[in-house]
């Protein structure tokens, strides 16, 4: 009897160990490792102040990357997000400067709504070009990347667009610099956006459809899933996330220029991939993505605090990280 139950229990125990998907754990292990390295490099690093600063600064990339998780999970790619940040932010500031609404609070509210709408529309455009236009997402968003960037440059006439009203700036500042119960607002926004995204991806019909479409368009189609709608919606979510990032970005500097958000698309994609989402679609990992965004920002921070690597090398280091992440992902891939 006893030996029977043992024989029954042991494979189960072994299975739970084997069942842990290393790809899901890897980014968090890497984050932990980085924290240790950071602490060794500079004792100030591990302080709550520094870490909360790092997290705050990672907010833009983290939030954009959450959107990118949807697009990449559904098997697409959006290269236009960096330009989209600049474009949406410019329109937001121009609207606030226009003074069409007298009351500053109402004006701010309207601007926020408008920003979210514009962001979604930018995403919709990307989605329609890829699905209805049947153009590879890489090419489609390469095109809109140029378009959004070019429109920004034209709007700003090559210079900067700055929020003029000091009153509005004062009113809007806390959106980035404020804190609630000691936690900076951007960190709260990251947590909220990620939690909602995780819920959508893992616990709704739409999330399941994203996984299916990203894993196999054919299987999705033969399962009666409206593949094009699912893909387009992922692009809209991406646009919405860009708009949320803009809502945090504008109060920070109160200004945008033609170079705003330059190369952010690469950082966002890096964060997603480092976080364990497969670039070929399918498995989306929202919390991993946030982890990836933190890792990117932490690496920069460690370089800044250390004396032996020039901070001018940060781009090279981030490029190395994405390559290492891909290699790790492939080596950890469970054999079929």
């Amino acid at each position: 009897m006893t030996s029977d139950t043992q024989a029954d229990a042991s494979p189960r125990r072994a299975r739970t160990w084997r069942d842990i998907d290393l790809r899901a754990v890897a980014p968090f292990a890497a984050l932990f490792l980085l924290l240790i390295v950071g602490a060794m490099v500079n004792p100030n690093f591990i302080g709550l102040n520094n870490l909360s600063n790092v997290a705050t600064r990672s907010a833009f990339i983290a939030i954009i990357a959450v959107g990118a998780t949807f697009v990449i999970s559904s098997g697409d790619l959006d290269l236009s997000v960096g330009s989209m940040v600049a474009f949406v932010a410019s329109l937001m500031i121009l609207f606030m400067n226009s003074g069409v609404i007298a009351d500053p609070a109402l004006m701010l509210l309207a601007a926020i709504v408008l920003t979210l709408v514009i962001g979604s529309l930018c995403g919709l455009v990307n989605g329609l070009i890829t699905t209805v236009g049947r153009i590879e997402p890489f090419i489609a968003t390469l095109g809109t990347m140029g378009i959004y960037r070019g429109l920004t440059t034209w709007l700003s006439q090559g210079g900067a667009i700055t929020l003029r009203s000091a009153e509005q700036q004062a009113l809007y500042r806390p959106a980035y610099f404020g804190s609630v119960l000691g936690v900076p607002v951007p960190i709260l926004v990251i947590l909220a956006v990620t939690a909602i995204a995780a819920f959508i991806l893992y616990r709704t019909r739409y999330g399941r459809h994203v996984t299916a479409v990203g894993s196999s368009r054919d299987v999705a189609r033969y399962s009666g899933i409206a593949v094009d709608k699912v893909r387009t919606a992922a692009f809209i979510i991406q646009g919405l996330c860009v708009a949320i990032a803009v809502l945090l970005y504008v109060p920070r500097l109160g200004s945008t220029s033609a170079t705003t958000g330059m190369l952010w698309e690469l950082q966002a994609i890096t964060a997603v991939v480092v976080g364990g989402t497969a670039l070929k679609g399918g498995a989306g990992r929202v919390w991993g993505t946030i982890c990836g965004a933190f890792i990117l920002e932490l690496v920069g921070n460690i370089m800044l605090l250390s004396n032996f690597i020039s901070e001018y090398l940060i781009g090279a280091i981030q490029g190395t990280i994405i390559i290492i992440a891909m290699l790790v992902q492939r080596s950890l891939a469970r054999k079929t």
């Binding site: 819920f199 616990r203 299916a212 894993s215 196999s216 054919d218 033969y222 399918g282």
Partner: peptide, 27 residues
């Protein structure tokens, strides 16, 4: 065209009739 090979049995089983498993809009 039939099964998502990288997913488990349950995800595959309910894929086409996922609406049956929604409660207040979530799975």
């Amino acid at each position: 065209r039939g099964l998502l090979l990288g997913e488990g049995m349950t995800v595959n089983l309910t894929l086409q009739a996922i609406d049956q498993h929604l409660r207040h809009g979530y799975l």
